[in-house]
Write a protein that binds this DNA or RNA. Structure first.
Length: 369
DNA sequence: CGAGATGATTGGTA
DNA sequence: TACCAATCATCTCG
C-alpha cells in the first residue's frame, strides 16, 4: 500500500527553456518547431523530474542538487549517510551520462543543421530557396533531435527511478537490531519506565552505543512505549528480566543514596543502570521522588539517575511480591498507574477497574519538553 | 509456511 | 516538532 512518493511535483515549462537553449545554440528560431509541436506534456514531465532529481538542474557543486534530492527522497533525515553517498554517487553517474549524451546530441544536431544549411545554400545556386523553406527544414531536423532527446530523457528518468526505488527499498528493508542493541535499549527503557522519554542527548548516547541512528532510537522508543502500553502483561516478563538485571546495582545505588542522604555525603551513587546510562539530564528529575516507604528522597541530593534505579527496584519488589502495598497497593505497572504517573499516560485505558482513587502525588513528568 | 515480533512509515495531534 | 496510533513490510521462529 505504501507508495514511493515519486511525485513529479508541479510541472513547469522547463521544456521551453531547454528547447530555447538548443535553438539559441544552433542559432535557430524555435517558432517553427513550436507551431506544429506544442509542448509535449510528457517531455515536460520528464524535464521536471530530471530537474527535481537533480539530474538536469543547474550543476556546479558536484551534485549538491543530487544530494538534496537524495535527502528529500529519504524524508530529509541525514542519517543514512552511507546509503546517501551511495545514492549520490550513482545519481552523479547518471547525471554525467545524461549530460554527455545531451551534449553529443546537441552537437550532432548542430552539425547536421549546418550540413543541411550548407546543402540548401548550395542548392540555392540552382534554384530559389525561400527562408521559410530553410526554417521548415531546420524545424524538421530539430524535431527529430528533440525526439531523440526525449528518449534520452526518458531512459534517464527510468534509470533514476530504478535507482531511487532501489534506494528506498533498501531503506525499507528492515533488519532487526543486534541483540546487544536491543538489550541496551531495553535496559534504558525499563529503568526509566516511569518516564521512558530519552532526551536528545540520551538518544544520541543510545544510538552510539547501539550503532544505530538517533531516529532509529526514537522509532524504537516510540514503538516500545506503544507496545508496552498496549499489552503490559506481555512485557511483564521482559520487564522483570531487565529490572532484575539492574536490581542489584539499583539496590546498591539506592542504598548508597539513602546513606548519602543520611550522612550528607556528597558522593553520588553513580552507576547508571548497568553502568551504561549515566545520563546527564534525562528528564527523570521531574519525577516525584517518592520512595518505597513513603519517605521521600530529595531529588537534589540523590541525583536524577537514582530515580531510575528506584523505578527498577520498585518494579522488582512489586513483581516479587516482596513489597506489601505501602504504596496503596497499586500495581506500579498498570496502565492506570502510568496514567497516574503523569506524562506516560494511557489514553486508551481499557474499561477495566479503574479506581481513580488516590493519585499518588501526581507528577509532572509529562511530555512538556 | 504461518503467526508473532519488530523496525519503519504515515497521518494526525498538540 | 515530538509523539501517538495504526499500519505496513520484513524477519524470526516453531
Amino acid at each position: 500500500m505504501r507508495k514511493h512518493a515519486l511525485n513529479c511535483h508541479r510541472m513547469k515549462p522547463a521544456l521551453f527553456s531547454v528547447l530555447c537553449e538548443i535553438k539559441e545554440k544552433t542559432g535557430l528560431s524555435i517558432r517553427g518547431a513550436q507551431e506544429e509541436d506544442p509542448p509535449d506534456p510528457q517531455l515536460m514531465r520528464l524535464d521536471n523530474m530530471l530537474l527535481a532529481e537533480g539530474v538536469s538542474g543547474p550543476e556546479k557543486g558536484g551534485g549538491s542538487a543530487a544530494a538534496a534530492a537524495a535527502a528529500a527522497a529519504s524524508g530529509g533525515s541525514s542519517d543514512n549517510s552511507i546509503e546517501h553517498s551511495d545514492y549520490r554517487a550513482k545519481l552523479t553517474q547518471i547525471r554525467q551520462i545524461y549530460h554527455t549524451e545531451l551534449e553529443k546530441y546537441e552537437q550532432a544536431c548542430n552539425e547536421f543543421t549546418t550540413h543541411v544549411m550548407n546543402l540548401l545554400r548550395e542548392q540555392s545556386r540552382t534554384r530559389p530557396i525561400s527562408p521559410k523553406e530553410i526554417e521548415r527544414m531546420v524545424g524538421i531536423i530539430h524535431r527529430k533531435f528533440s525526439s531523440i532527446q526525449m528518449q534520452l530523457k526518458q531512459s534517464t528518468c527510468e534509470a533514476v527511478m530504478i535507482l531511487r526505488s532501489r534506494f528506498l527499498d533498501a531503506r525499507r528493508k528492515r533488519r532487526n537490531f543486534s541483540k546487544q542493541a536491543t538489550e541496551i535499549l531495553n535496559e534504558y527503557f525499563y529503568s526509566h519506565l516511569s518516564n521512558p522519554y530519552p532526551s536528545e542527548e540520551a538518544k544520541e548516547e543510545l544510538a552510539k552505543k547501539c550503532s544505530i541512528t538517533v531516529s532509529q532510537v526514537s522509532n524504537w522508543f516510540g514503538n516500545k512505549r506503544i507496545r508496552y502500553k498496549k499489552n503490559i502483561g506481555k512485557f511483564q516478563e521482559e520487564a522483570n528480566l531487565y529490572a532484575a538485571k539492574t536490581a542489584v546495582t539499583a539496590a546498591h545505588a539506592v542504598a548508597a543514596a539513602v546513606q548519602n542522604n543520611q550522612t550528607n555525603s556528597p558522593t553520588t551513587p553513580n552507576s547508571g543502570s548497568s553502568g551504561s546510562f549515566n545520563l546527564p539530564n534525562s528528564g527523570d528529575m521531574f519525577m516525584n521522588m517518592q520512595s518505597l516507604n513513603g519517605d521521600s528522597y530529595q531529588g537534589s541530593q540523590v541525583g536524577a539517575n537514582v530515580q531510575s534505579q528506584v523505578d527498577t527496584l520498585r518494579h522488582v519488589i512489586n513483581q516479587t511480591g516482596g513489597y506489601s502495598d505501602g504504596l496503596g497497593g497499586n500495581s506500579l505497572y498498570s496502565p492506570h498507574n502510568l496514567n497516574a504517573n503523569g506524562g506516560w499516560q494511557d489514553a486508551t485505558t481499557p474499561s477495566s477497574v479503574t479506581s481513580p482513587t488516590e493519585g499518588p502525588g501526581s507528577v509532572h513528568s509529562d511530555t512538556s519538553n
